[in-house]
Computed example of a mutant assay.
Amino acid sequence: MAWTKYQLFLAGLMLTTGSINTLSAKWADMFSANGCKDSPEHTFSHPFVQAVGMFLGELSCLAVFHMLLCHDRRRPEPKMNTGQSFNPLLFLPPALCDMTATSIMYVALNMTSASSFQMLRGAVIIFTGLLSVAFLGRRLVASQWTGILVTILGLIVVGLADFMSGHKDDSHKLSEVITGDLLIIMAQVIAAVQMVLEEKFVYKHDVHPLRAVGTEGFFGFFILSLLLIPFFYIPVGSFSNNPRHVLEDALDAFCQIGHNPMIILALLGNTVSIAFFNFAGISVTKEISATTRMVLDSLRTVVIWVVSLALGWEQFHGLQVLGFIVLLVGAALYNGLHRPLLARIPCCASMVEEEEEGNPAERTRLLDEGRVQEES
């Protein structure tokens, strides 16, 4: 079935804003400027300030939700499904997970390349699958277990690529690259906990996606903004790159922005792009399919990689190509992208049907995407 112009627009918007989100965050990390009290010029290393900006972008989704709701109510026959009433505190646990995972990832982005950052985020498949089995009682089919194993292999290949390129990288020490990669994988454990919490406690209340994202953004923005105060006084030694070597020096961040206004452009790019990315992602799932959303999310890794190479932010490494391909295969197997292809092969069609019937959760997902017909 051919896509409509609106569907093409949504796919393009998701791919573009998703790529800008990571690239703008990395761009901000590459700026240098003087800090407060005429401190020497130093790189903009403020991951928690960047995380606050990202949550501000998510919070804006709540404003968009209410704008759409007001517009819908003016119609003669309102069509917007606002979902059930719910306690906003329901979103606090996943918001805390989101806040922790995002902050760790922005710390890691200071230490490694943008492309490796995006590729290693694929590790979330492993932990989401394992946690869903342990806490949601889900039964993974053979292809999903295979996808998890292939993803682990892909992570090893990307890690080896970073290890080998770390010896030649002038911008990052090898120890920093390895630490950054490990932090990204650690963050995916927390992100997986967030997804399991959302599925167990949030989605069953039929909350509108924009409202869900916005509510989590609300908690993340205000809690992390308050935490910037104690972070200002917590010494962390050489682990931090700000002049005072504290966990986060928000004042130094604002002083650097004052000395180099281009930094605010990068931060705004991150904030605005995350808002549009969430909107586009939700719309792609609704208008096209969840599988298409996964494919576009994989494609933005390619965009980030190509742009980083073109701008000279990182060097080409053949192992990264192999790692990305392996990760892509792992994600495809886990998300069932192989099934439509196998279903066309007579000898494999029955195997695909048995796999779908043996996994009720997978069948529900396919029904939502319109790939199988509900029996009357």
Score class of each variant (00 low, 15 high):
residue 347 C to Q: 14
residue 169 D to S: 06
residue 248 E to R: 15
residue 120 L to W: 07
residue 150 V to Y: 00
residue 196 V to Y: 02
residue 363 R to P: 00
residue 25 A to R: 09
residue 80 M to L: 15
residue 11 A to V: 12
residue 55 F to Y: 06
residue 375 E to S: 09
residue 53 G to V: 04
residue 109 L to K: 00
residue 3 W to I: 10
residue 350 S to Y: 02
residue 355 E to N: 05
residue 204 K to H: 02
residue 315 Q to V: 13
residue 118 Q to A: 04
residue 262 M to P: 01
residue 53 G to P: 03
residue 128 T to R: 06
residue 156 I to F: 10
residue 363 R to E: 07
residue 214 G to N: 09
residue 127 F to P: 04
residue 77 E to D: 09
residue 197 L to Y: 04
residue 125 I to E: 07
residue 129 G to T: 13
residue 152 I to Y: 13
residue 134 A to T: 15
residue 248 E to K: 08
residue 276 F to G: 06
residue 344 R to F: 01
residue 356 E to N: 06
residue 198 E to G: 01
residue 219 F to P: 00
residue 255 C to R: 02
residue 64 V to K: 14
residue 44 F to M: 14
residue 279 F to P: 00
residue 155 L to E: 04
residue 112 T to Y: 05
residue 270 N to M: 05
residue 101 A to P: 00
residue 115 S to Q: 01
residue 183 L to Y: 13
residue 167 H to W: 15
residue 32 S to K: 15
residue 70 C to F: 14
residue 301 T to H: 11
residue 127 F to G: 01
residue 230 P to M: 09
residue 99 M to G: 03
residue 217 G to V: 01
residue 251 L to S: 01
residue 277 F to A: 08
residue 217 G to S: 05
residue 90 L to P: 00
residue 207 V to L: 11
residue 112 T to Q: 11
residue 150 V to L: 08
residue 221 F to P: 00
residue 89 L to I: 07
residue 12 G to P: 08
residue 274 I to H: 10
residue 270 N to W: 08
residue 304 I to H: 00
residue 75 R to N: 08
residue 25 A to Q: 15
residue 239 F to I: 14
residue 127 F to K: 09
residue 349 A to P: 09
residue 369 E to W: 03
residue 295 V to C: 12
residue 224 L to Y: 14
residue 277 F to S: 02
residue 156 I to W: 14
residue 317 H to I: 13
residue 32 S to D: 14
residue 350 S to I: 07
residue 197 L to A: 08
residue 19 S to E: 13
residue 256 Q to D: 07
residue 100 T to Q: 11
residue 299 L to T: 07
residue 60 S to V: 11
residue 233 Y to Q: 06
residue 7 Q to I: 11
residue 199 E to D: 07
residue 168 K to D: 09
residue 348 C to G: 04
residue 256 Q to K: 02
residue 314 E to Y: 06
residue 35 G to K: 00
residue 240 S to V: 00
residue 13 L to T: 11
residue 72 D to E: 09
residue 77 E to C: 02
residue 136 L to A: 13
residue 280 A to Y: 07
residue 325 I to W: 08
residue 368 D to S: 01
residue 227 L to T: 03
residue 266 A to D: 00
residue 337 L to Q: 12
residue 357 E to L: 05
residue 138 R to E: 08
residue 186 M to A: 09
residue 33 A to N: 06
residue 258 G to M: 13
residue 362 E to G: 07
residue 7 Q to N: 05
residue 46 H to W: 03
residue 215 T to D: 04
residue 136 L to P: 02
residue 10 L to K: 00
residue 12 G to L: 12
residue 347 C to K: 13
residue 122 G to F: 13
residue 239 F to T: 05
residue 115 S to L: 15
residue 316 F to G: 03
residue 195 M to L: 13
residue 142 A to P: 02
residue 221 F to C: 08
residue 283 S to V: 03
residue 87 N to S: 02
residue 62 L to E: 05
residue 140 L to D: 12
residue 263 I to F: 03
residue 272 V to S: 05
residue 147 G to Y: 15
residue 368 D to L: 11
residue 3 W to F: 14
residue 305 W to E: 05
residue 287 E to M: 13
residue 192 A to C: 04
residue 373 Q to A: 12
residue 252 D to G: 09
residue 302 V to C: 08
residue 366 L to R: 10
residue 132 S to L: 09
residue 140 L to E: 04
residue 298 S to I: 10
residue 20 I to D: 03
residue 217 G to M: 05
residue 76 P to L: 10
residue 307 V to F: 08
residue 64 V to R: 03
residue 28 A to G: 02
